[in-house]
Design a protein around this nucleic acid. Structure first.
Lengths: 154, 154
DNA sequence: ATGGTTGCAAAGTCTTTGCAACTAT
DNA sequence: ATAGTTGCAAAGACTTTGCAACCAT
């Protein structure tokens, strides 16, 4: 299920660092590594935990800062959820929206050019220039349907 | 631009209180009053400020608690934005989504049965049972276009 | 009287920032 | 040497909770 090699994304990071006169660092590279290997939609907590399996000395702050750099480099995209944010790979991945299970929390992606088009039409109607959007659909995923909701949002 | 009388919503609150063995209270009624009069999409801060114009002794906590009750009574709907949440009237208002200006912060509503239908189709495809959704489109509103973004999200 | 309601202060979450030590260039 | 990077602790922003006093029923 890999869209492309992680090596490619590491190159992107290096280029971004060069372009912005930033320096490379082991912790940040370890974080990128883990981020790329991780399932999509990791939270900071999860990512930190995964990173610390490899390097116990890496702190939470560094993860936050690394994610910020990844976003600027176009490698990560932030998903603003209710309490916490999650991060997904962004490099060479088209825009997509999400189904989020209220019971188990799992996330499914979907894309719809139609929706984008309709959105654009509505925007045009009121002279609104779209710069981005956030579209999250909540409910019960296939394997949780019938068991009733267990994870209530705040 | 009033969809219906505020009195109707006050009745709903009273009914909700009765049904749940809750008691009426002046502060909560004052908050509902101000909430109904306010422009849609108020933040807790704004609502508190408005409420305190009338009754300086009402505290922020009470506003939070009142909004929770209003939501349970179906009178208010919470809009989860980036840093803070906003609240809008929910009684007898159909579902709708939002355009949010990155510059001035103003919010415009839009409805699209088509989008809902497409969403439903995608959900059905993966056996997902939709319970709700959050669809926010960010960009520049008509009067801010051309001035460039000034209000950057966190 | 009983039990919901209120304001305040304190505690909670998640995220960012100040700072001194450290490290890449 | 110069300037970015790191971890920790502290600070921030927003929201919730504990508690004693208060008020509706």
């Amino acid at each position: 299920m890999k869209e492309h090699s992680a090596a490619e994304e590491k190159g992107i990071l290096t280029a971004h660092l060069a372009k912005n006169r930033l320096k490379r660092s082991e912790p940040r590279e370890a974080i990128l590594d883990v981020f790329l290997r991780s399932d999509h939609h990791v939270s900071v907590d999860e990512l930190l935990r995964l990173v610390q399996k490899r390097r116990r000395d890496i702190g939470r702050t560094t993860v936050y800062r690394a994610l910020k750099v990844f976003q600027q480099a176009g490698l990560a995209h932030e998903l603003v959820l209710d309490g916490e944010n999650r991060y997904e790979r962004a490099y060479k991945r088209g825009h997509h929206d999400h189904f989020i299970c209220n019971s188990c929390g799992s996330i499914f992606e979907f894309t719809s050019a139609e929706i984008e088009a309709i959105q654009e039409r509505h925007a045009h109607r009121i002279g609104f220039k779209i710069e981005g959007h956030r579209h999250q659909v909540y409910g019960q995923c296939q394997s949780c349907v019938g068991k009733g909701p267990r994870r209530t949002r705040r």
